[in-house]
């Protein structure tokens, strides 16, 4: 059985249809990429899966259980963590405190949460910044912070909204390596990514969205040959 199943999800904002009948599945330990031009409905899809938006139609199930109408915190408790496209650190708290908030999902004990937070921060390579205020971090470091915060909730499924967006070229390889390590550790991931080289390298399967609809769902090697994906997103340069 799939870990995450999305079937027939539809979301309208007034006259705009952000998601139309979107269906796909993610198996345990799988890494699925989501691509599509701006406005294709990628972030809305994440919002629907994590309970931040309410779907007009369709279902989201996790291990077979319907989670469509649950609140964001209930979905987090069931093991789905996410990051946001626009970074949302707790600016006035330290790096360690930020991550402890995530760790508190699994323990009420402060010492245990602190230890879990240290562990998560070490795994993303931020162990030397634990006492810094989140507002003082660079964009790349904030991405790592959000990752650590999400990981501290001990998710089974992690939704990453743009891993490499807004960071400089030199930072990208480190972030990609980090995502690959998480995947190697058995975590299932869904990754929205605009950098095609990165997503081709990472994903086992790619879901392509255009104007809120799934136009392709296939392994990367097939996605780059799909004429609809090329027309909608990749452009002629990709045509083999």
């Amino acid at each position: 059985m799939s870990l995450l199943t999305v079937s027939g999800l539809t979301k309208r904002f007034g006259g705009v249809i952000a998601n139309r009948d979107v269906s796909f599945a993610v198996a345990s330990g799988e890494l699925v990429g989501v691509i599509g031009p701006n406005g294709a409905g990628k972030s809305t899809l994440f919002d629907l899966v994590t309970g931040f938006q309410r779907a007009d139609a369709g279902r989201v199930t996790l291990d077979g259980a319907d989670v469509t109408r649950l609140r964001p915190d209930e979905i987090a408790r069931r093991g789905v963590a996410r990051t946001f496209q626009k970074l949302r650190p707790f600016s006035d708290m330290t790096v360690l405190e930020n991550v402890m908030v995530g760790a508190f999902l699994r323990t009420a004990d402060v010492a245990a949460a602190r230890e879990a937070a240290h562990h998560a921060l070490t795994s993303v390579g931020l162990a030397d910044r634990v006492d810094a205020h989140a507002r003082g971090l660079s964009t790349g470091q904030r991405k790592r912070l959000e990752l650590a915060r999400a990981l501290a909730t001990r998710p089974r499924l992690l939704l990453l909204d743009e891993v490499t967006g807004g960071v400089d070229q030199a930072t990208i390889p480190g972030l990609v390596r980090l995502v690959r390590e998480l995947h190697a550790g058995g975590l299932a991931l869904v990754v929205i990514e605009h950098n095609m080289r990165v997503i081709m390298e990472l994903a086992q399967r790619i879901v392509a969205l255009q104007l809120g609809e799934v136009i392709a769902d296939a392994p990367p090697s097939e996605i780059v040959r799909n004429p609809r994906v090329i027309d909608a997103y990749l452009g002629q340069a990709w045509r083999p």
């Binding site: 915190d73 987090a76 707790f90 508190f104 999902l105």
Partner: peptide
């Protein structure tokens, strides 16, 4: 910790399992 997280960003807090 939850109170301060809500003050800073309640969506981010909710995504980490905080019942806001």
């Amino acid at each position: 910790y939850y109170f301060r997280a809500i003050r800073e960003d309640q969506e981010a807090a909710a995504s980490l399992g905080v019942h806001v």
